[in-house]
């Protein structure tokens, strides 16, 4: 295992614990939580072989589900954004599979990174809250939760990346 793999494992476990022990208890206005664990999907390196990212996303979601007693809701949403990640990568960053090796979010312009992350976050949150709701009633509740929690997640993500990237 390379140094990078250890780093990713550390981030994986750290994000799960952060989500399960701290962020799941925020419940701003009794319902708004940030779901920052999906940051792992953003920072996971792009590879041609997509089995690893799909498996890891599923496992990540499953771990979060385990801590929040939600069946497979997080696993579903996380696997979905992990699967759709390359399509958004292609359209937003205008790059092909050949660029995977040298790609880094830090080197891209903030606007593109922002679009990429915002779209994936809201996609994830929408699926998450729809499945948590598990019915077509209270659809307004799903939408409002998606938007508010999405803003919260994005705020925390960009704050965290801003703090951690300054050495």
């Amino acid at each position: 295992m390379s140094r990078n793999s250890f780093y990713l494992l550390f981030v994986f476990i750290g994000l799960i614990l952060l989500q399960a022990l701290v962020l799941n208890n925020i419940l701003l206005f009794d319902r708004i939580n940030p779901y920052i664990y999906i940051a792992f999907i953003f920072i996971y390196p792009f590879k041609k072989n997509r089995f690893s990212i799909l498996s890891i996303a599923f496992l990540l979601g499953l771990c979060i589900d385990m801590f929040s007693d939600s069946g497979g809701v997080h696993a579903f949403a996380t696997t979905f954004i992990a699967y759709s990640r390359p399509y958004f990568f292609r359209t937003i960053f205008q790059k092909t599979e050949l660029d995977y090796e040298f790609f880094s979010l830090k080197q891209e312009s903030f606007g593109k990174v922002f679009n990429f992350i915002v779209i994936l976050t809201f996609l994830h949150h929408f699926l998450l809250f729809s499945l948590l709701n598990f019915s077509f009633h209270n659809f307004f509740y799903v939408i409002s939760n998606t938007i508010l929690s999405g803003i919260f997640t994005l705020f925390i993500y960009f704050l965290g990346s801003f703090i951690l990237s300054r050495k």
């Binding site: 979601g61 007693d69 069946g71 497979g72 696997t79 979905f80």
Partner: peptide
């Protein structure tokens, strides 16, 4: 991908039905 999604959907449905044992729980 579809296999994984199907698995999660099964888990979700399993979570919503009462008399079944749940592996993915706290």
């Amino acid at each position: 991908f579809l296999l994984l999604q199907l698995l999660s959907l099964l888990l979700i449905i399993n979570n919503h039905s009462y008399h079944k044992s749940k592996f993915i729980s706290s």
